[in-house]
Design a protein around this nucleic acid. Sequence first.
DNA 1: TCTCTTTTTGGGATCGCTCCCATGAGTCTT
DNA 2: AAGACTCATGGGAGCGATCCCAAAAAGAGA
Lengths: 353, 353
Amino acid sequence: MDLESIARKAGVSRSTVSRVINDSPNVSEQTRQRVLAIIEEEDFHPNAAARALVKRRTDILGVVMPTSANVFFSDNNYYPLILAGLSDAIRQLDYAMLMWLGEVTHSDQHLMRRLSNPHLTDGLIFVSLPSDHPLYEKLSRLRQPFVMIDRPLTNVENTNYVSVDNVRAAEIATQHLIQLGRRRIAHIAGILAIADSCDRLVGYRNALRAAGLPIDERLIVESDFNYQTGYRAMQQLLPHKPDAVFASNDTVAAGALQAIHEAGLRVPDDLSLVGFDDVDVALQTDPPLTTIRQPIRAKGETAARLLVDLINGKLSAPQHVILPTELIVRQSCGAHSPTPKGGDARSADDLSE
Amino acid sequence: MDLESIARKAGVSRSTVSRVINDSPNVSEQTRQRVLAIIEEEDFHPNAAARALVKRRTDILGVVMPTSANVFFSDNNYYPLILAGLSDAIRQLDYAMLMWLGEVTHSDQHLMRRLSNPHLTDGLIFVSLPSDHPLYEKLSRLRQPFVMIDRPLTNVENTNYVSVDNVRAAEIATQHLIQLGRRRIAHIAGILAIADSCDRLVGYRNALRAAGLPIDERLIVESDFNYQTGYRAMQQLLPHKPDAVFASNDTVAAGALQAIHEAGLRVPDDLSLVGFDDVDVALQTDPPLTTIRQPIRAKGETAARLLVDLINGKLSAPQHVILPTELIVRQSCGAHSPTPKGGDARSADDLSE
DNA sequence: TCTCTTTTTGGGATCGCTCCCATGAGTCTT
DNA sequence: AAGACTCATGGGAGCGATCCCAAAAAGAGA
């Protein structure tokens, strides 16, 4: 079933059917209706490959999340939320979304070739690509446009990316704890191979330094962004008597909270706790978490729009889009007297829509 | 850059280059090496559209999750886990994955057309497609193979699907509670528009009936698969004095647990609690949850393999694949004396790999 | 050395579209 | 009423692969 056979049935030419399908204005209303009727009747679908062959665009965007399953599921639904944002925007922009989840190793030649095939997608979006990734080098040679979500670690200037100012956000979180009178503030970092984690650690150090507080390296512990490692990190920290903890995300904060409770300490009375992301879990802990809200879905949406602009040649210089974050004060930091539970601001990201 | 230009540089013909690319055995080793060198040198990528046009296959599988963001994120990572399973298997089978997330409404003609375009994907996988969905009707007319994950509500016989025996699993969970001497067993159901939820409810009723226990409709409450509604459902149940609760998933169970604790009751002493899925959260509650483990990732993997078999014409009759579930006994049901925390079986799905 | 078979190679036809140009029909102008 | 102009339509060329068949080259057997 092709254009020609539809044309024959409608008593017109191939070209006219093509015009109808592509909403060309130069078709008489009468003809258009006749053709549309036949198309409907025959349940005709134009061949995407043939179209792509001549138009040199597939109307497909590629999304690559070279994230291990481990991180994908533990990190606060961060990646699923990014995905949702991407998916929404890409659908709205009338593209389809081709997806690769999971680690991409250098040895996976097949996949590497496919990813860099400029004929398969019109552009690519990479989410949290580590700097030492073999794809990185390939990217530079790539002729097709691409956008990164989260700041790349190297070659920052020439890369289009969408991120938040993690350094500033971490400064604000830490500063908040300092203003509450805390002096021994610990930090449970995320995976330090990820730029965001590094930046948050930098922000944490900046804030302490700015306040003239000493930086005690024993108060800095790494985690894997998940509950379990948050719990263990806190157990490591407790002997050094911190009076506050800034955690790399809300799930880690929840794990830390568990360890704190098991040690017979109270939050926020004995320790103040601040998380990051502001997702569901921040409201499910007891007490609910003070945290930094970042617009996770919006990151995905923005990246998709940016990529499409790039594809359409609307941009010249590389774009660096920095989305805003916000400190959400709840009970776990002890900043103010408890408000009625559930009465405070909810995340814009988690359950909305 | 096309086959022809590579051919010219290598001093061979178009056809020979094509043979090299497609691993045809009828190429001399010498020629193959020469051509491969040029391909590498020029960073040549064959045009996927041109290939698809003549081969009549795109090597792309479509995955449709017509799930609202609400359910996507609340339901125990169920959908992200399915996705991971699909992604792994599809990559391994050397296909690419085209994805549509989120609700697909009848009015979204554009998307509907795209989904049913047999030239875009070689086959489709639908995850938890509600029975009243407009896509359902379109599917029947579809000429391309498709597989569903989770039992469809109607037209079951003619549909290829992968699921678990939710009825039986719920019977086992409920039976377990009965054997522990519980008599007023409540059920927090999931969204009843989803077949799985219905089946679990049926299994619950079956078990009570088989044990000669009365079915008290006040002990059955619906939830949205998330913490919040699990919490509220439990609050509704408490006045009717249940001595056990079978929850539709682990997150709902966690929400219920919170409500139980707030009411000053203890688990498992005052109430036994059983969840469903066996994901991370089941180990993060205190006490850890007794639950039904279902192989979520394996569902995705199985569906992908089934679809590829279907595409290759290896199957004739519609396939119904039912994967096994397992009762995982931990502390929340009170079945045995507490084992050391963390020492019990972990989910095969959550953090592995 | 010549024939017969097998392996390797080359080039035409084809897939189903879009693009471009030519043509015909209808309208407006002078 | 003829030329100029617009709008609707038709058909050739071409996108870049694969497939098929024919031809050339290499190897085998007598």
